[in-house]
Simulated assay, not measured.
Amino acid sequence: MKSICLFFTTFLAMTSFAFTFDPNPLEDFCVIINDIKTWVLVNGKCYKEPKLVTPDDFFFSIKEENISSQLGSQVTLPTVSEILGLNTLGISFARIDFAPKGLNPPHAHPRAAEILIVLEGTLNVGFVTSNPENRLITKVLNKGDVFVFPIGLIHFQHNMGDGNAVVISGLNSHNSRVITIIKEVFGSNQISSELLTKALQVDNNIVDNLQKQFWLDNN
């Protein structure tokens, strides 16, 4: 119970700084509109007229996801595309399901810090500080434990157990985005192998082989 209270207390503290990164709302809410027949113009964009807002604009159901992929994890991160009422509020949540030994690979959220609580399982989590230290900050978490990942830093979660694991994370952006490091570098096929060979100081054949792989996306 203490861990859950700490999670929400920390998350609320984070949201007090959320508008440093996301637009500061000037209305009670600003629900994105899909039906152009019922829109109003706010700051040059179309939003639903407040009197037409419904509870479904603020609702999303997160269910257990398929975790049978090679990574053994699945991230469900509803953004303003799924919860229209999230727009301008500066917050979002994610559920991450892990198969045994499943991995949420190194990634970063360019617009949000993240706070995570373990609901089930045992995970090794961590992040790497920026240059020049590049220090690894890592810890093993059990059910009820909470961990924070600073904004923009590369981080990961790895299920160490033989059973499934589930975590919930909060982010102080309504659209934090995700940069999956390995997938972005080798999966885009837009960075030349010559450039990567020089940057990584490895044989060109290694880079060519990595660029030919199918890099999974668990989001």
Rank of each mutant, 00 (worst) to 15 (best):
R95N: 07
I179G: 14
C30T: 03
P132R: 05
K51N: 03
K183N: 08
N66P: 07
H174L: 04
L171A: 11
Q70I: 15
V166R: 04
T20H: 10
R111D: 07
L89S: 06
C30S: 05
M160H: 03
P100G: 09
F19S: 08
L89A: 04
A199V: 06
N175F: 10
I32C: 05
V202N: 02
A18S: 10
A165T: 01
A99Q: 14
D22E: 11
L216E: 14
A108Y: 03
Q157K: 06
N205S: 15
K48D: 00
V167Y: 05
F149Y: 10
T138L: 09
P132T: 02
I117R: 00
D145E: 11
F147W: 11
D28E: 11
V166C: 12
I179T: 06
K2S: 12
E120C: 11
R135G: 09
L77H: 07
L6N: 15
N87A: 01
F21P: 01
G161I: 06
I32Y: 06
V202A: 02
T122E: 14
V40P: 00
T138H: 11
I32A: 02
V31W: 00
F147T: 04
G102F: 13
I154N: 02
D56W: 05
H158R: 08
A108I: 05
I206Q: 13
L216A: 14
N159A: 04
